[in-house]
Design a protein around this nucleic acid. Structure first.
Lengths: 256, 256
DNA sequence: TCAAAAGTGTTTCAGCTACACCCATGA
DNA sequence: TCATGGGTGTAGCTGAAACACTTTTGA
């Protein structure tokens, strides 16, 4: 069992040294929205207690963005909207990445050296619909899970810092570009939408004000179906792609 | 002469393969403001007709930001405010970087291969005071110059695209954080300041509105000296560092 | 008919815009 | 005293915030 995992890792890395660029990796901070909370997608590797961001190496023949998509799909994350944030490359950021149990055997091997050398990680943020991702567990890739962004368990290396910085940048993104719709299902009520913003900004937003603002933008259009829950049923809306793409290009307003 | 340059390059690269990380480079898009125009600092390398961004490789023992500062100072750019933007790493972005005249001799050498392999460039923007930088010419590093950002000569590789994208990001920066003061001399009039914003945003801004907004922020404080030019002399102002650092941390406002 | 949640109307306030007017200086 | 630019006052518009009010449904 342990043998088998070791073999898999050995293959991965020995092949990796040919196929992948050294010193360069990608990571994606994948966000989703569920139960009025903002979640991050995390994984671990077997034998390693703390958590890490999904990501991996970059093939010599693929672009950075392609590497991000490819690695995410390994963890069952598809249909994801990604945007590059920045890169993290301090000299000493690779430290505890090799699981303790492996160290004894692997410490002297070529691929352990390769994997623990200095890496510049190009970081993306990702937005997915919560229901589109099913966290899984595998011998090789370990366990994956959603975690509340405000309540993270211990993270490997500088990943906690990366999440923290990325969240700050995401907030700015959401305030200037209406990328939020990548976090919502196909159709949604305006209250769902508002709840998302409240979760991200961590404050309440007036119902009427939010409603009027969104409708005025034309960003959202009525589908005219209704929900079957308690109280007066809400209209369902979906995003207007055209208005969305247009507003993606707009620059910020003047006013510090 | 040509021999000498070749030797220098040869040393640079042969040492470089030991000292520098492969596949990772940094570039900085350095902006300055002069004559009501936004300028970019560019260089060429001898024998190469088109222009490129200042930058270079990353030492194995230095952080990315340190590499940016070190490389800039090689070109006489000091006292510069920098911030990381993002990274550019498409597979085919390194293409025409080796000067044609060198190709014949160097094509088969180790360091030519090293230098023309795929590089992920971590890009920063930089802001300096125009008067603080004196473009120079040297045999090894070539010629450097300021160029109007709206009127660029042909650039090497993807550098034109990098400048273009960086400028867009810079505009957003300037609209949300008052980093502009890094482009102005120690003291300045409010009209200088306004001119800077007009140059960057490429539109006119009402004098009164701009004035009131800046003064209200408390970002700027009167030094009470005066200019000796035609017409009524203006007050000179300088930045209030405290208010500046505070506003750097603020997040954007709600309102798409 | 009542509770629950959706949706609307309206007042208030702050801030930006535009533009006119006044002020200080040197020639 | 006039040209040149610095500095101020203000009316009007826009849009956010707050909160009360109305509507629609299921039980």
């Amino acid at each position: 069992m342990q043998e088998e995992i070791n073999d898999k890792l050995k293959n991965y890395f020995s092949e990796g040294m040919e196929v992948f660029l050294p010193h360069v990796s990608i990571n994606v901070v994948v966000f989703a929205y569920d139960d009025f909370k903002l979640k991050v997608f995390l994984k671990n590797i077997p034998q390693l207690k703390s958590w890490l961001l999904p990501g991996g190496h970059v093939r010599r023949d693929e672009n950075l963005e392609e590497a991000a998509y490819r690695n995410l799909s390994l963890f069952g994350v598809n249909n994801v909207f990604i945007r590059q944030i920045k890169s993290f490359g301090d000299v000493d950021r690779v430290s505890d990445i090799v699981p303790t149990d492996y160290k004894a055997e692997f410490a002297k091997s070529e691929f352990a050296k390769w994997a623990t050398q200095r890496f510049i990680s190009v970081v993306y943020y990702g937005l997915v619909r919560f229901r589109d991702v099913e966290p899984t567990t595998s011998d090789f890739f370990g366990e994956s899970t959603w975690m509340d962004v405000n309540d993270l368990e211990p993270m490997v290396m500088d990943h906690a810092e990366i999440i923290h910085e990325t969240k700050k940048l995401l907030i700015n993104e959401l305030l200037t570009h209406p990328v939020a719709f990548n976090l919502l299902p196909e159709t949604f009520t305006l209250n769902d939408f508002r709840g998302l913003y409240e979760a991200i900004l961590d404050r309440s937003i007036d119902r009427g004000t939010f409603r009027r603002k969104m409708l005025k933008q034309g960003l959202v259009e009525k589908v005219d179906l209704r929900k079957d829950v308690l109280g007066r049923p809400a209209h369902l809306y979906r995003f207007n792609k055209k208005v969305y793409y247009k507003s993606l290009e707009q620059e910020a307003k003047f006013g510090f």
